[in-house]
Design a protein around this nucleic acid. Structure first.
Length: 419
RNA sequence: CGGGGUGUAGUGUAACGGCUAACAUUCCUGUUUUGGGAACAGGCGACUCCGGGUUCGAAUCCCGGCGCCCCGACCA
């Protein structure tokens, strides 16, 4: 993509109404636009990042048997009354609206009811189980207080998978697989080294639920990390008994602030019971389906990556979720430079290398460098009189201080390598 | 929903109760520039969040509302 066609611009100043680092950098660099508290639009660059994250999650969900669908944002009151979660006294963060005829309609704040209700139509026999449907969709929560930029919004894009199993054994097998899938996801988006499987309160059907917590000062949770074992305990269940039952030692645990980037939950029959979601087993006996839920907020995940991976100049995207792999800058108005850059741009595109080409004619070198650092694309390639005189193009990783000059072949070779 | 803070061109800031609301940046015109947010000249852009009040006079003081940020409670 040519930068001259990208309508967004960078800002020198941080917005006055944002304190959180993720919002500051993402707004300054032109990834997101704030509409109101807790509500952000994703601009072209931001959407590219979200799609990259979405694809990683999709691959990992599909790998463990997930099957993608899409539930509606509109929610039927009758369905939610079955699980007693329609009433505002029970759930206080509903967004609700009305049809012309006065019928009440809710906007999804979670998906258990929708899935249980749909799957009830299709699950009859033990032969229909297990199944692992999931979707990506926007979720709405009327938070009393949203905060921390895109870490906690009133509208957010998430992935939610629900598992439907015949019994606890079958459920547990998938539950363990989902842990591995989640670890893969957080590793692949570049925060694996800071993200811990965390034991949290479990509800009625299991002792614990599991959260994936990324350590950062921007977090709103407190967790106690065992760095050697790579696991943590959420403050909400942190006590001597729990520490002991997990085989941990209190003196080895480190207190950290962290962001909950994902969670997995055993639901047992909490929803299958009210929905009478049952199947007939081999003996013709009716049994309740065992459910689990597995969520990841994509905006929160994106914001967490920014919180964790940036410097004083801007964002430092991991290659896996960067909006582009390469930021190509042409410096100066020299004709050879302009043609050389254009030529390289076309060659990279032909090879399927994602490149943002800063082709702006009247923009100074300093401004292009500053923009490039702020936007945070992993590789920066400079075409200038100097680079051409030295025999090619200057390539520098966002994480490096000093670039090096290499020729076109070497450059394409470098950028084509998969990692 | 409790507590604290705050609201002025697109953005970031200034302005004693008193002149045409200032500066920087963005943007537009022109000249000159092109390896770290270039220089010069000119120009556009604000019912000072909204509604009341005090006053000869309000961006400024008072009351009410709303927005936004932070702490808490709650939550992915």
């Amino acid at each position: 993509m040519k930068q001259s066609q990208l309508f967004t611009k960078t800002k020198k100043e941080s917005p006055a109404d944002e304190v959180s680092l993720n919002a500051e950098l993402l707004i300054r660099a032109g990834y997101i636009n704030k509409e109101m508290a807790g509500v952000y639009s994703y601009l072209p660059l931001g959407l590219k990042v979200i799609k990259k994250i979405e694809n990683i999650i999709r691959e990992e969900m599909d790998k463990i048997g997930g099957i993608e669908m899409r539930t509606s944002v509109f929610q039927n009151k009758e369905v939610w009354e079955k699980s007693n979660r329609w009433d505002d006294e029970v759930v206080d963060n509903w967004f609700k609206t009305k049809l012309k005829n006065g019928t009440e309609v809710g906007l999804s704040f979670t998906n258990e009811e929708a899935y249980a209700d749909i799957l009830k139509q299709y699950i009859n026999s033990y032969k229909d189980l297990p199944v692992y449907p999931y979707d990506f969709k926007n979720i709405f929560r009327n938070e009393a207080r949203s905060k921390s930029g895109i870490l906690r919004g009133r509208e957010f894009y998430w992935k939610a998978l629900y598992s439907f199993s015949k019994n606890d054994e079958e459920h547990n097998i998938f539950y363990e697989k989902s842990k591995e899938a989640y670890k893969n996801i957080f590793r692949r988006v570049g925060i694996g080294h800071l993200t811990y499987l965390t034991f949290a309160s479990g509800g009625t059907f299991s002792k614990f639920s599991h959260e994936f917590q990324t350590v950062t000062s921007a977090g709103e949770d407190l967790i106690y990390v065992d760095p050697n074992k790579g696991i943590a305990i959420n403050k909400e269940v942190y006590n001597d008994e729990v520490i002991e039952s997990l085989g941990l030692k209190k003196e080895e645990l480190v207190e950290n602030k962290a962001v909950e980037v994902g969670n997995i939950f055993s639901l047992g029959t909490k929803f299958s019971a009210p929905f009478e979601l049952k199947y007939k087993d081999e003996n013709g006996e009716e049994k309740l389906v065992i459910m689990g839920s597995y969520g990841i907020g994509l905006g929160r995940l994106m914001g967490t990556v920014v919180e964790v991976l940036s410097d004083d100049k801007g964002i430092i995207w991991p290659e896996s979720i960067a909006p582009f792999k390469v930021h190509l800058l042409s410096l100066g108005g020299d004709e050879n430079v302009r043609n050389g850059a254009e030529d390289l741009y076309n060659k990279l595109k032909e090879r399927g290398i994602e490149v943002l080409f800063d082709d702006r004619a009247d923009t100074s070198a300093g401004e292009k460098f500053a923009d490039s650092d702020l936007i945070g694309i992993p590789y920066r390639v400079v075409v200038s009189k100097r680079s051409l005189a030295d025999g090619g193009f200057e390539v520098k990783k966002r994480t490096e201080v000093q670039g090096k000059i290499i020729n076109e072949q070497e450059l394409i070779g470098l950028l084509e390598t998969k990692n």
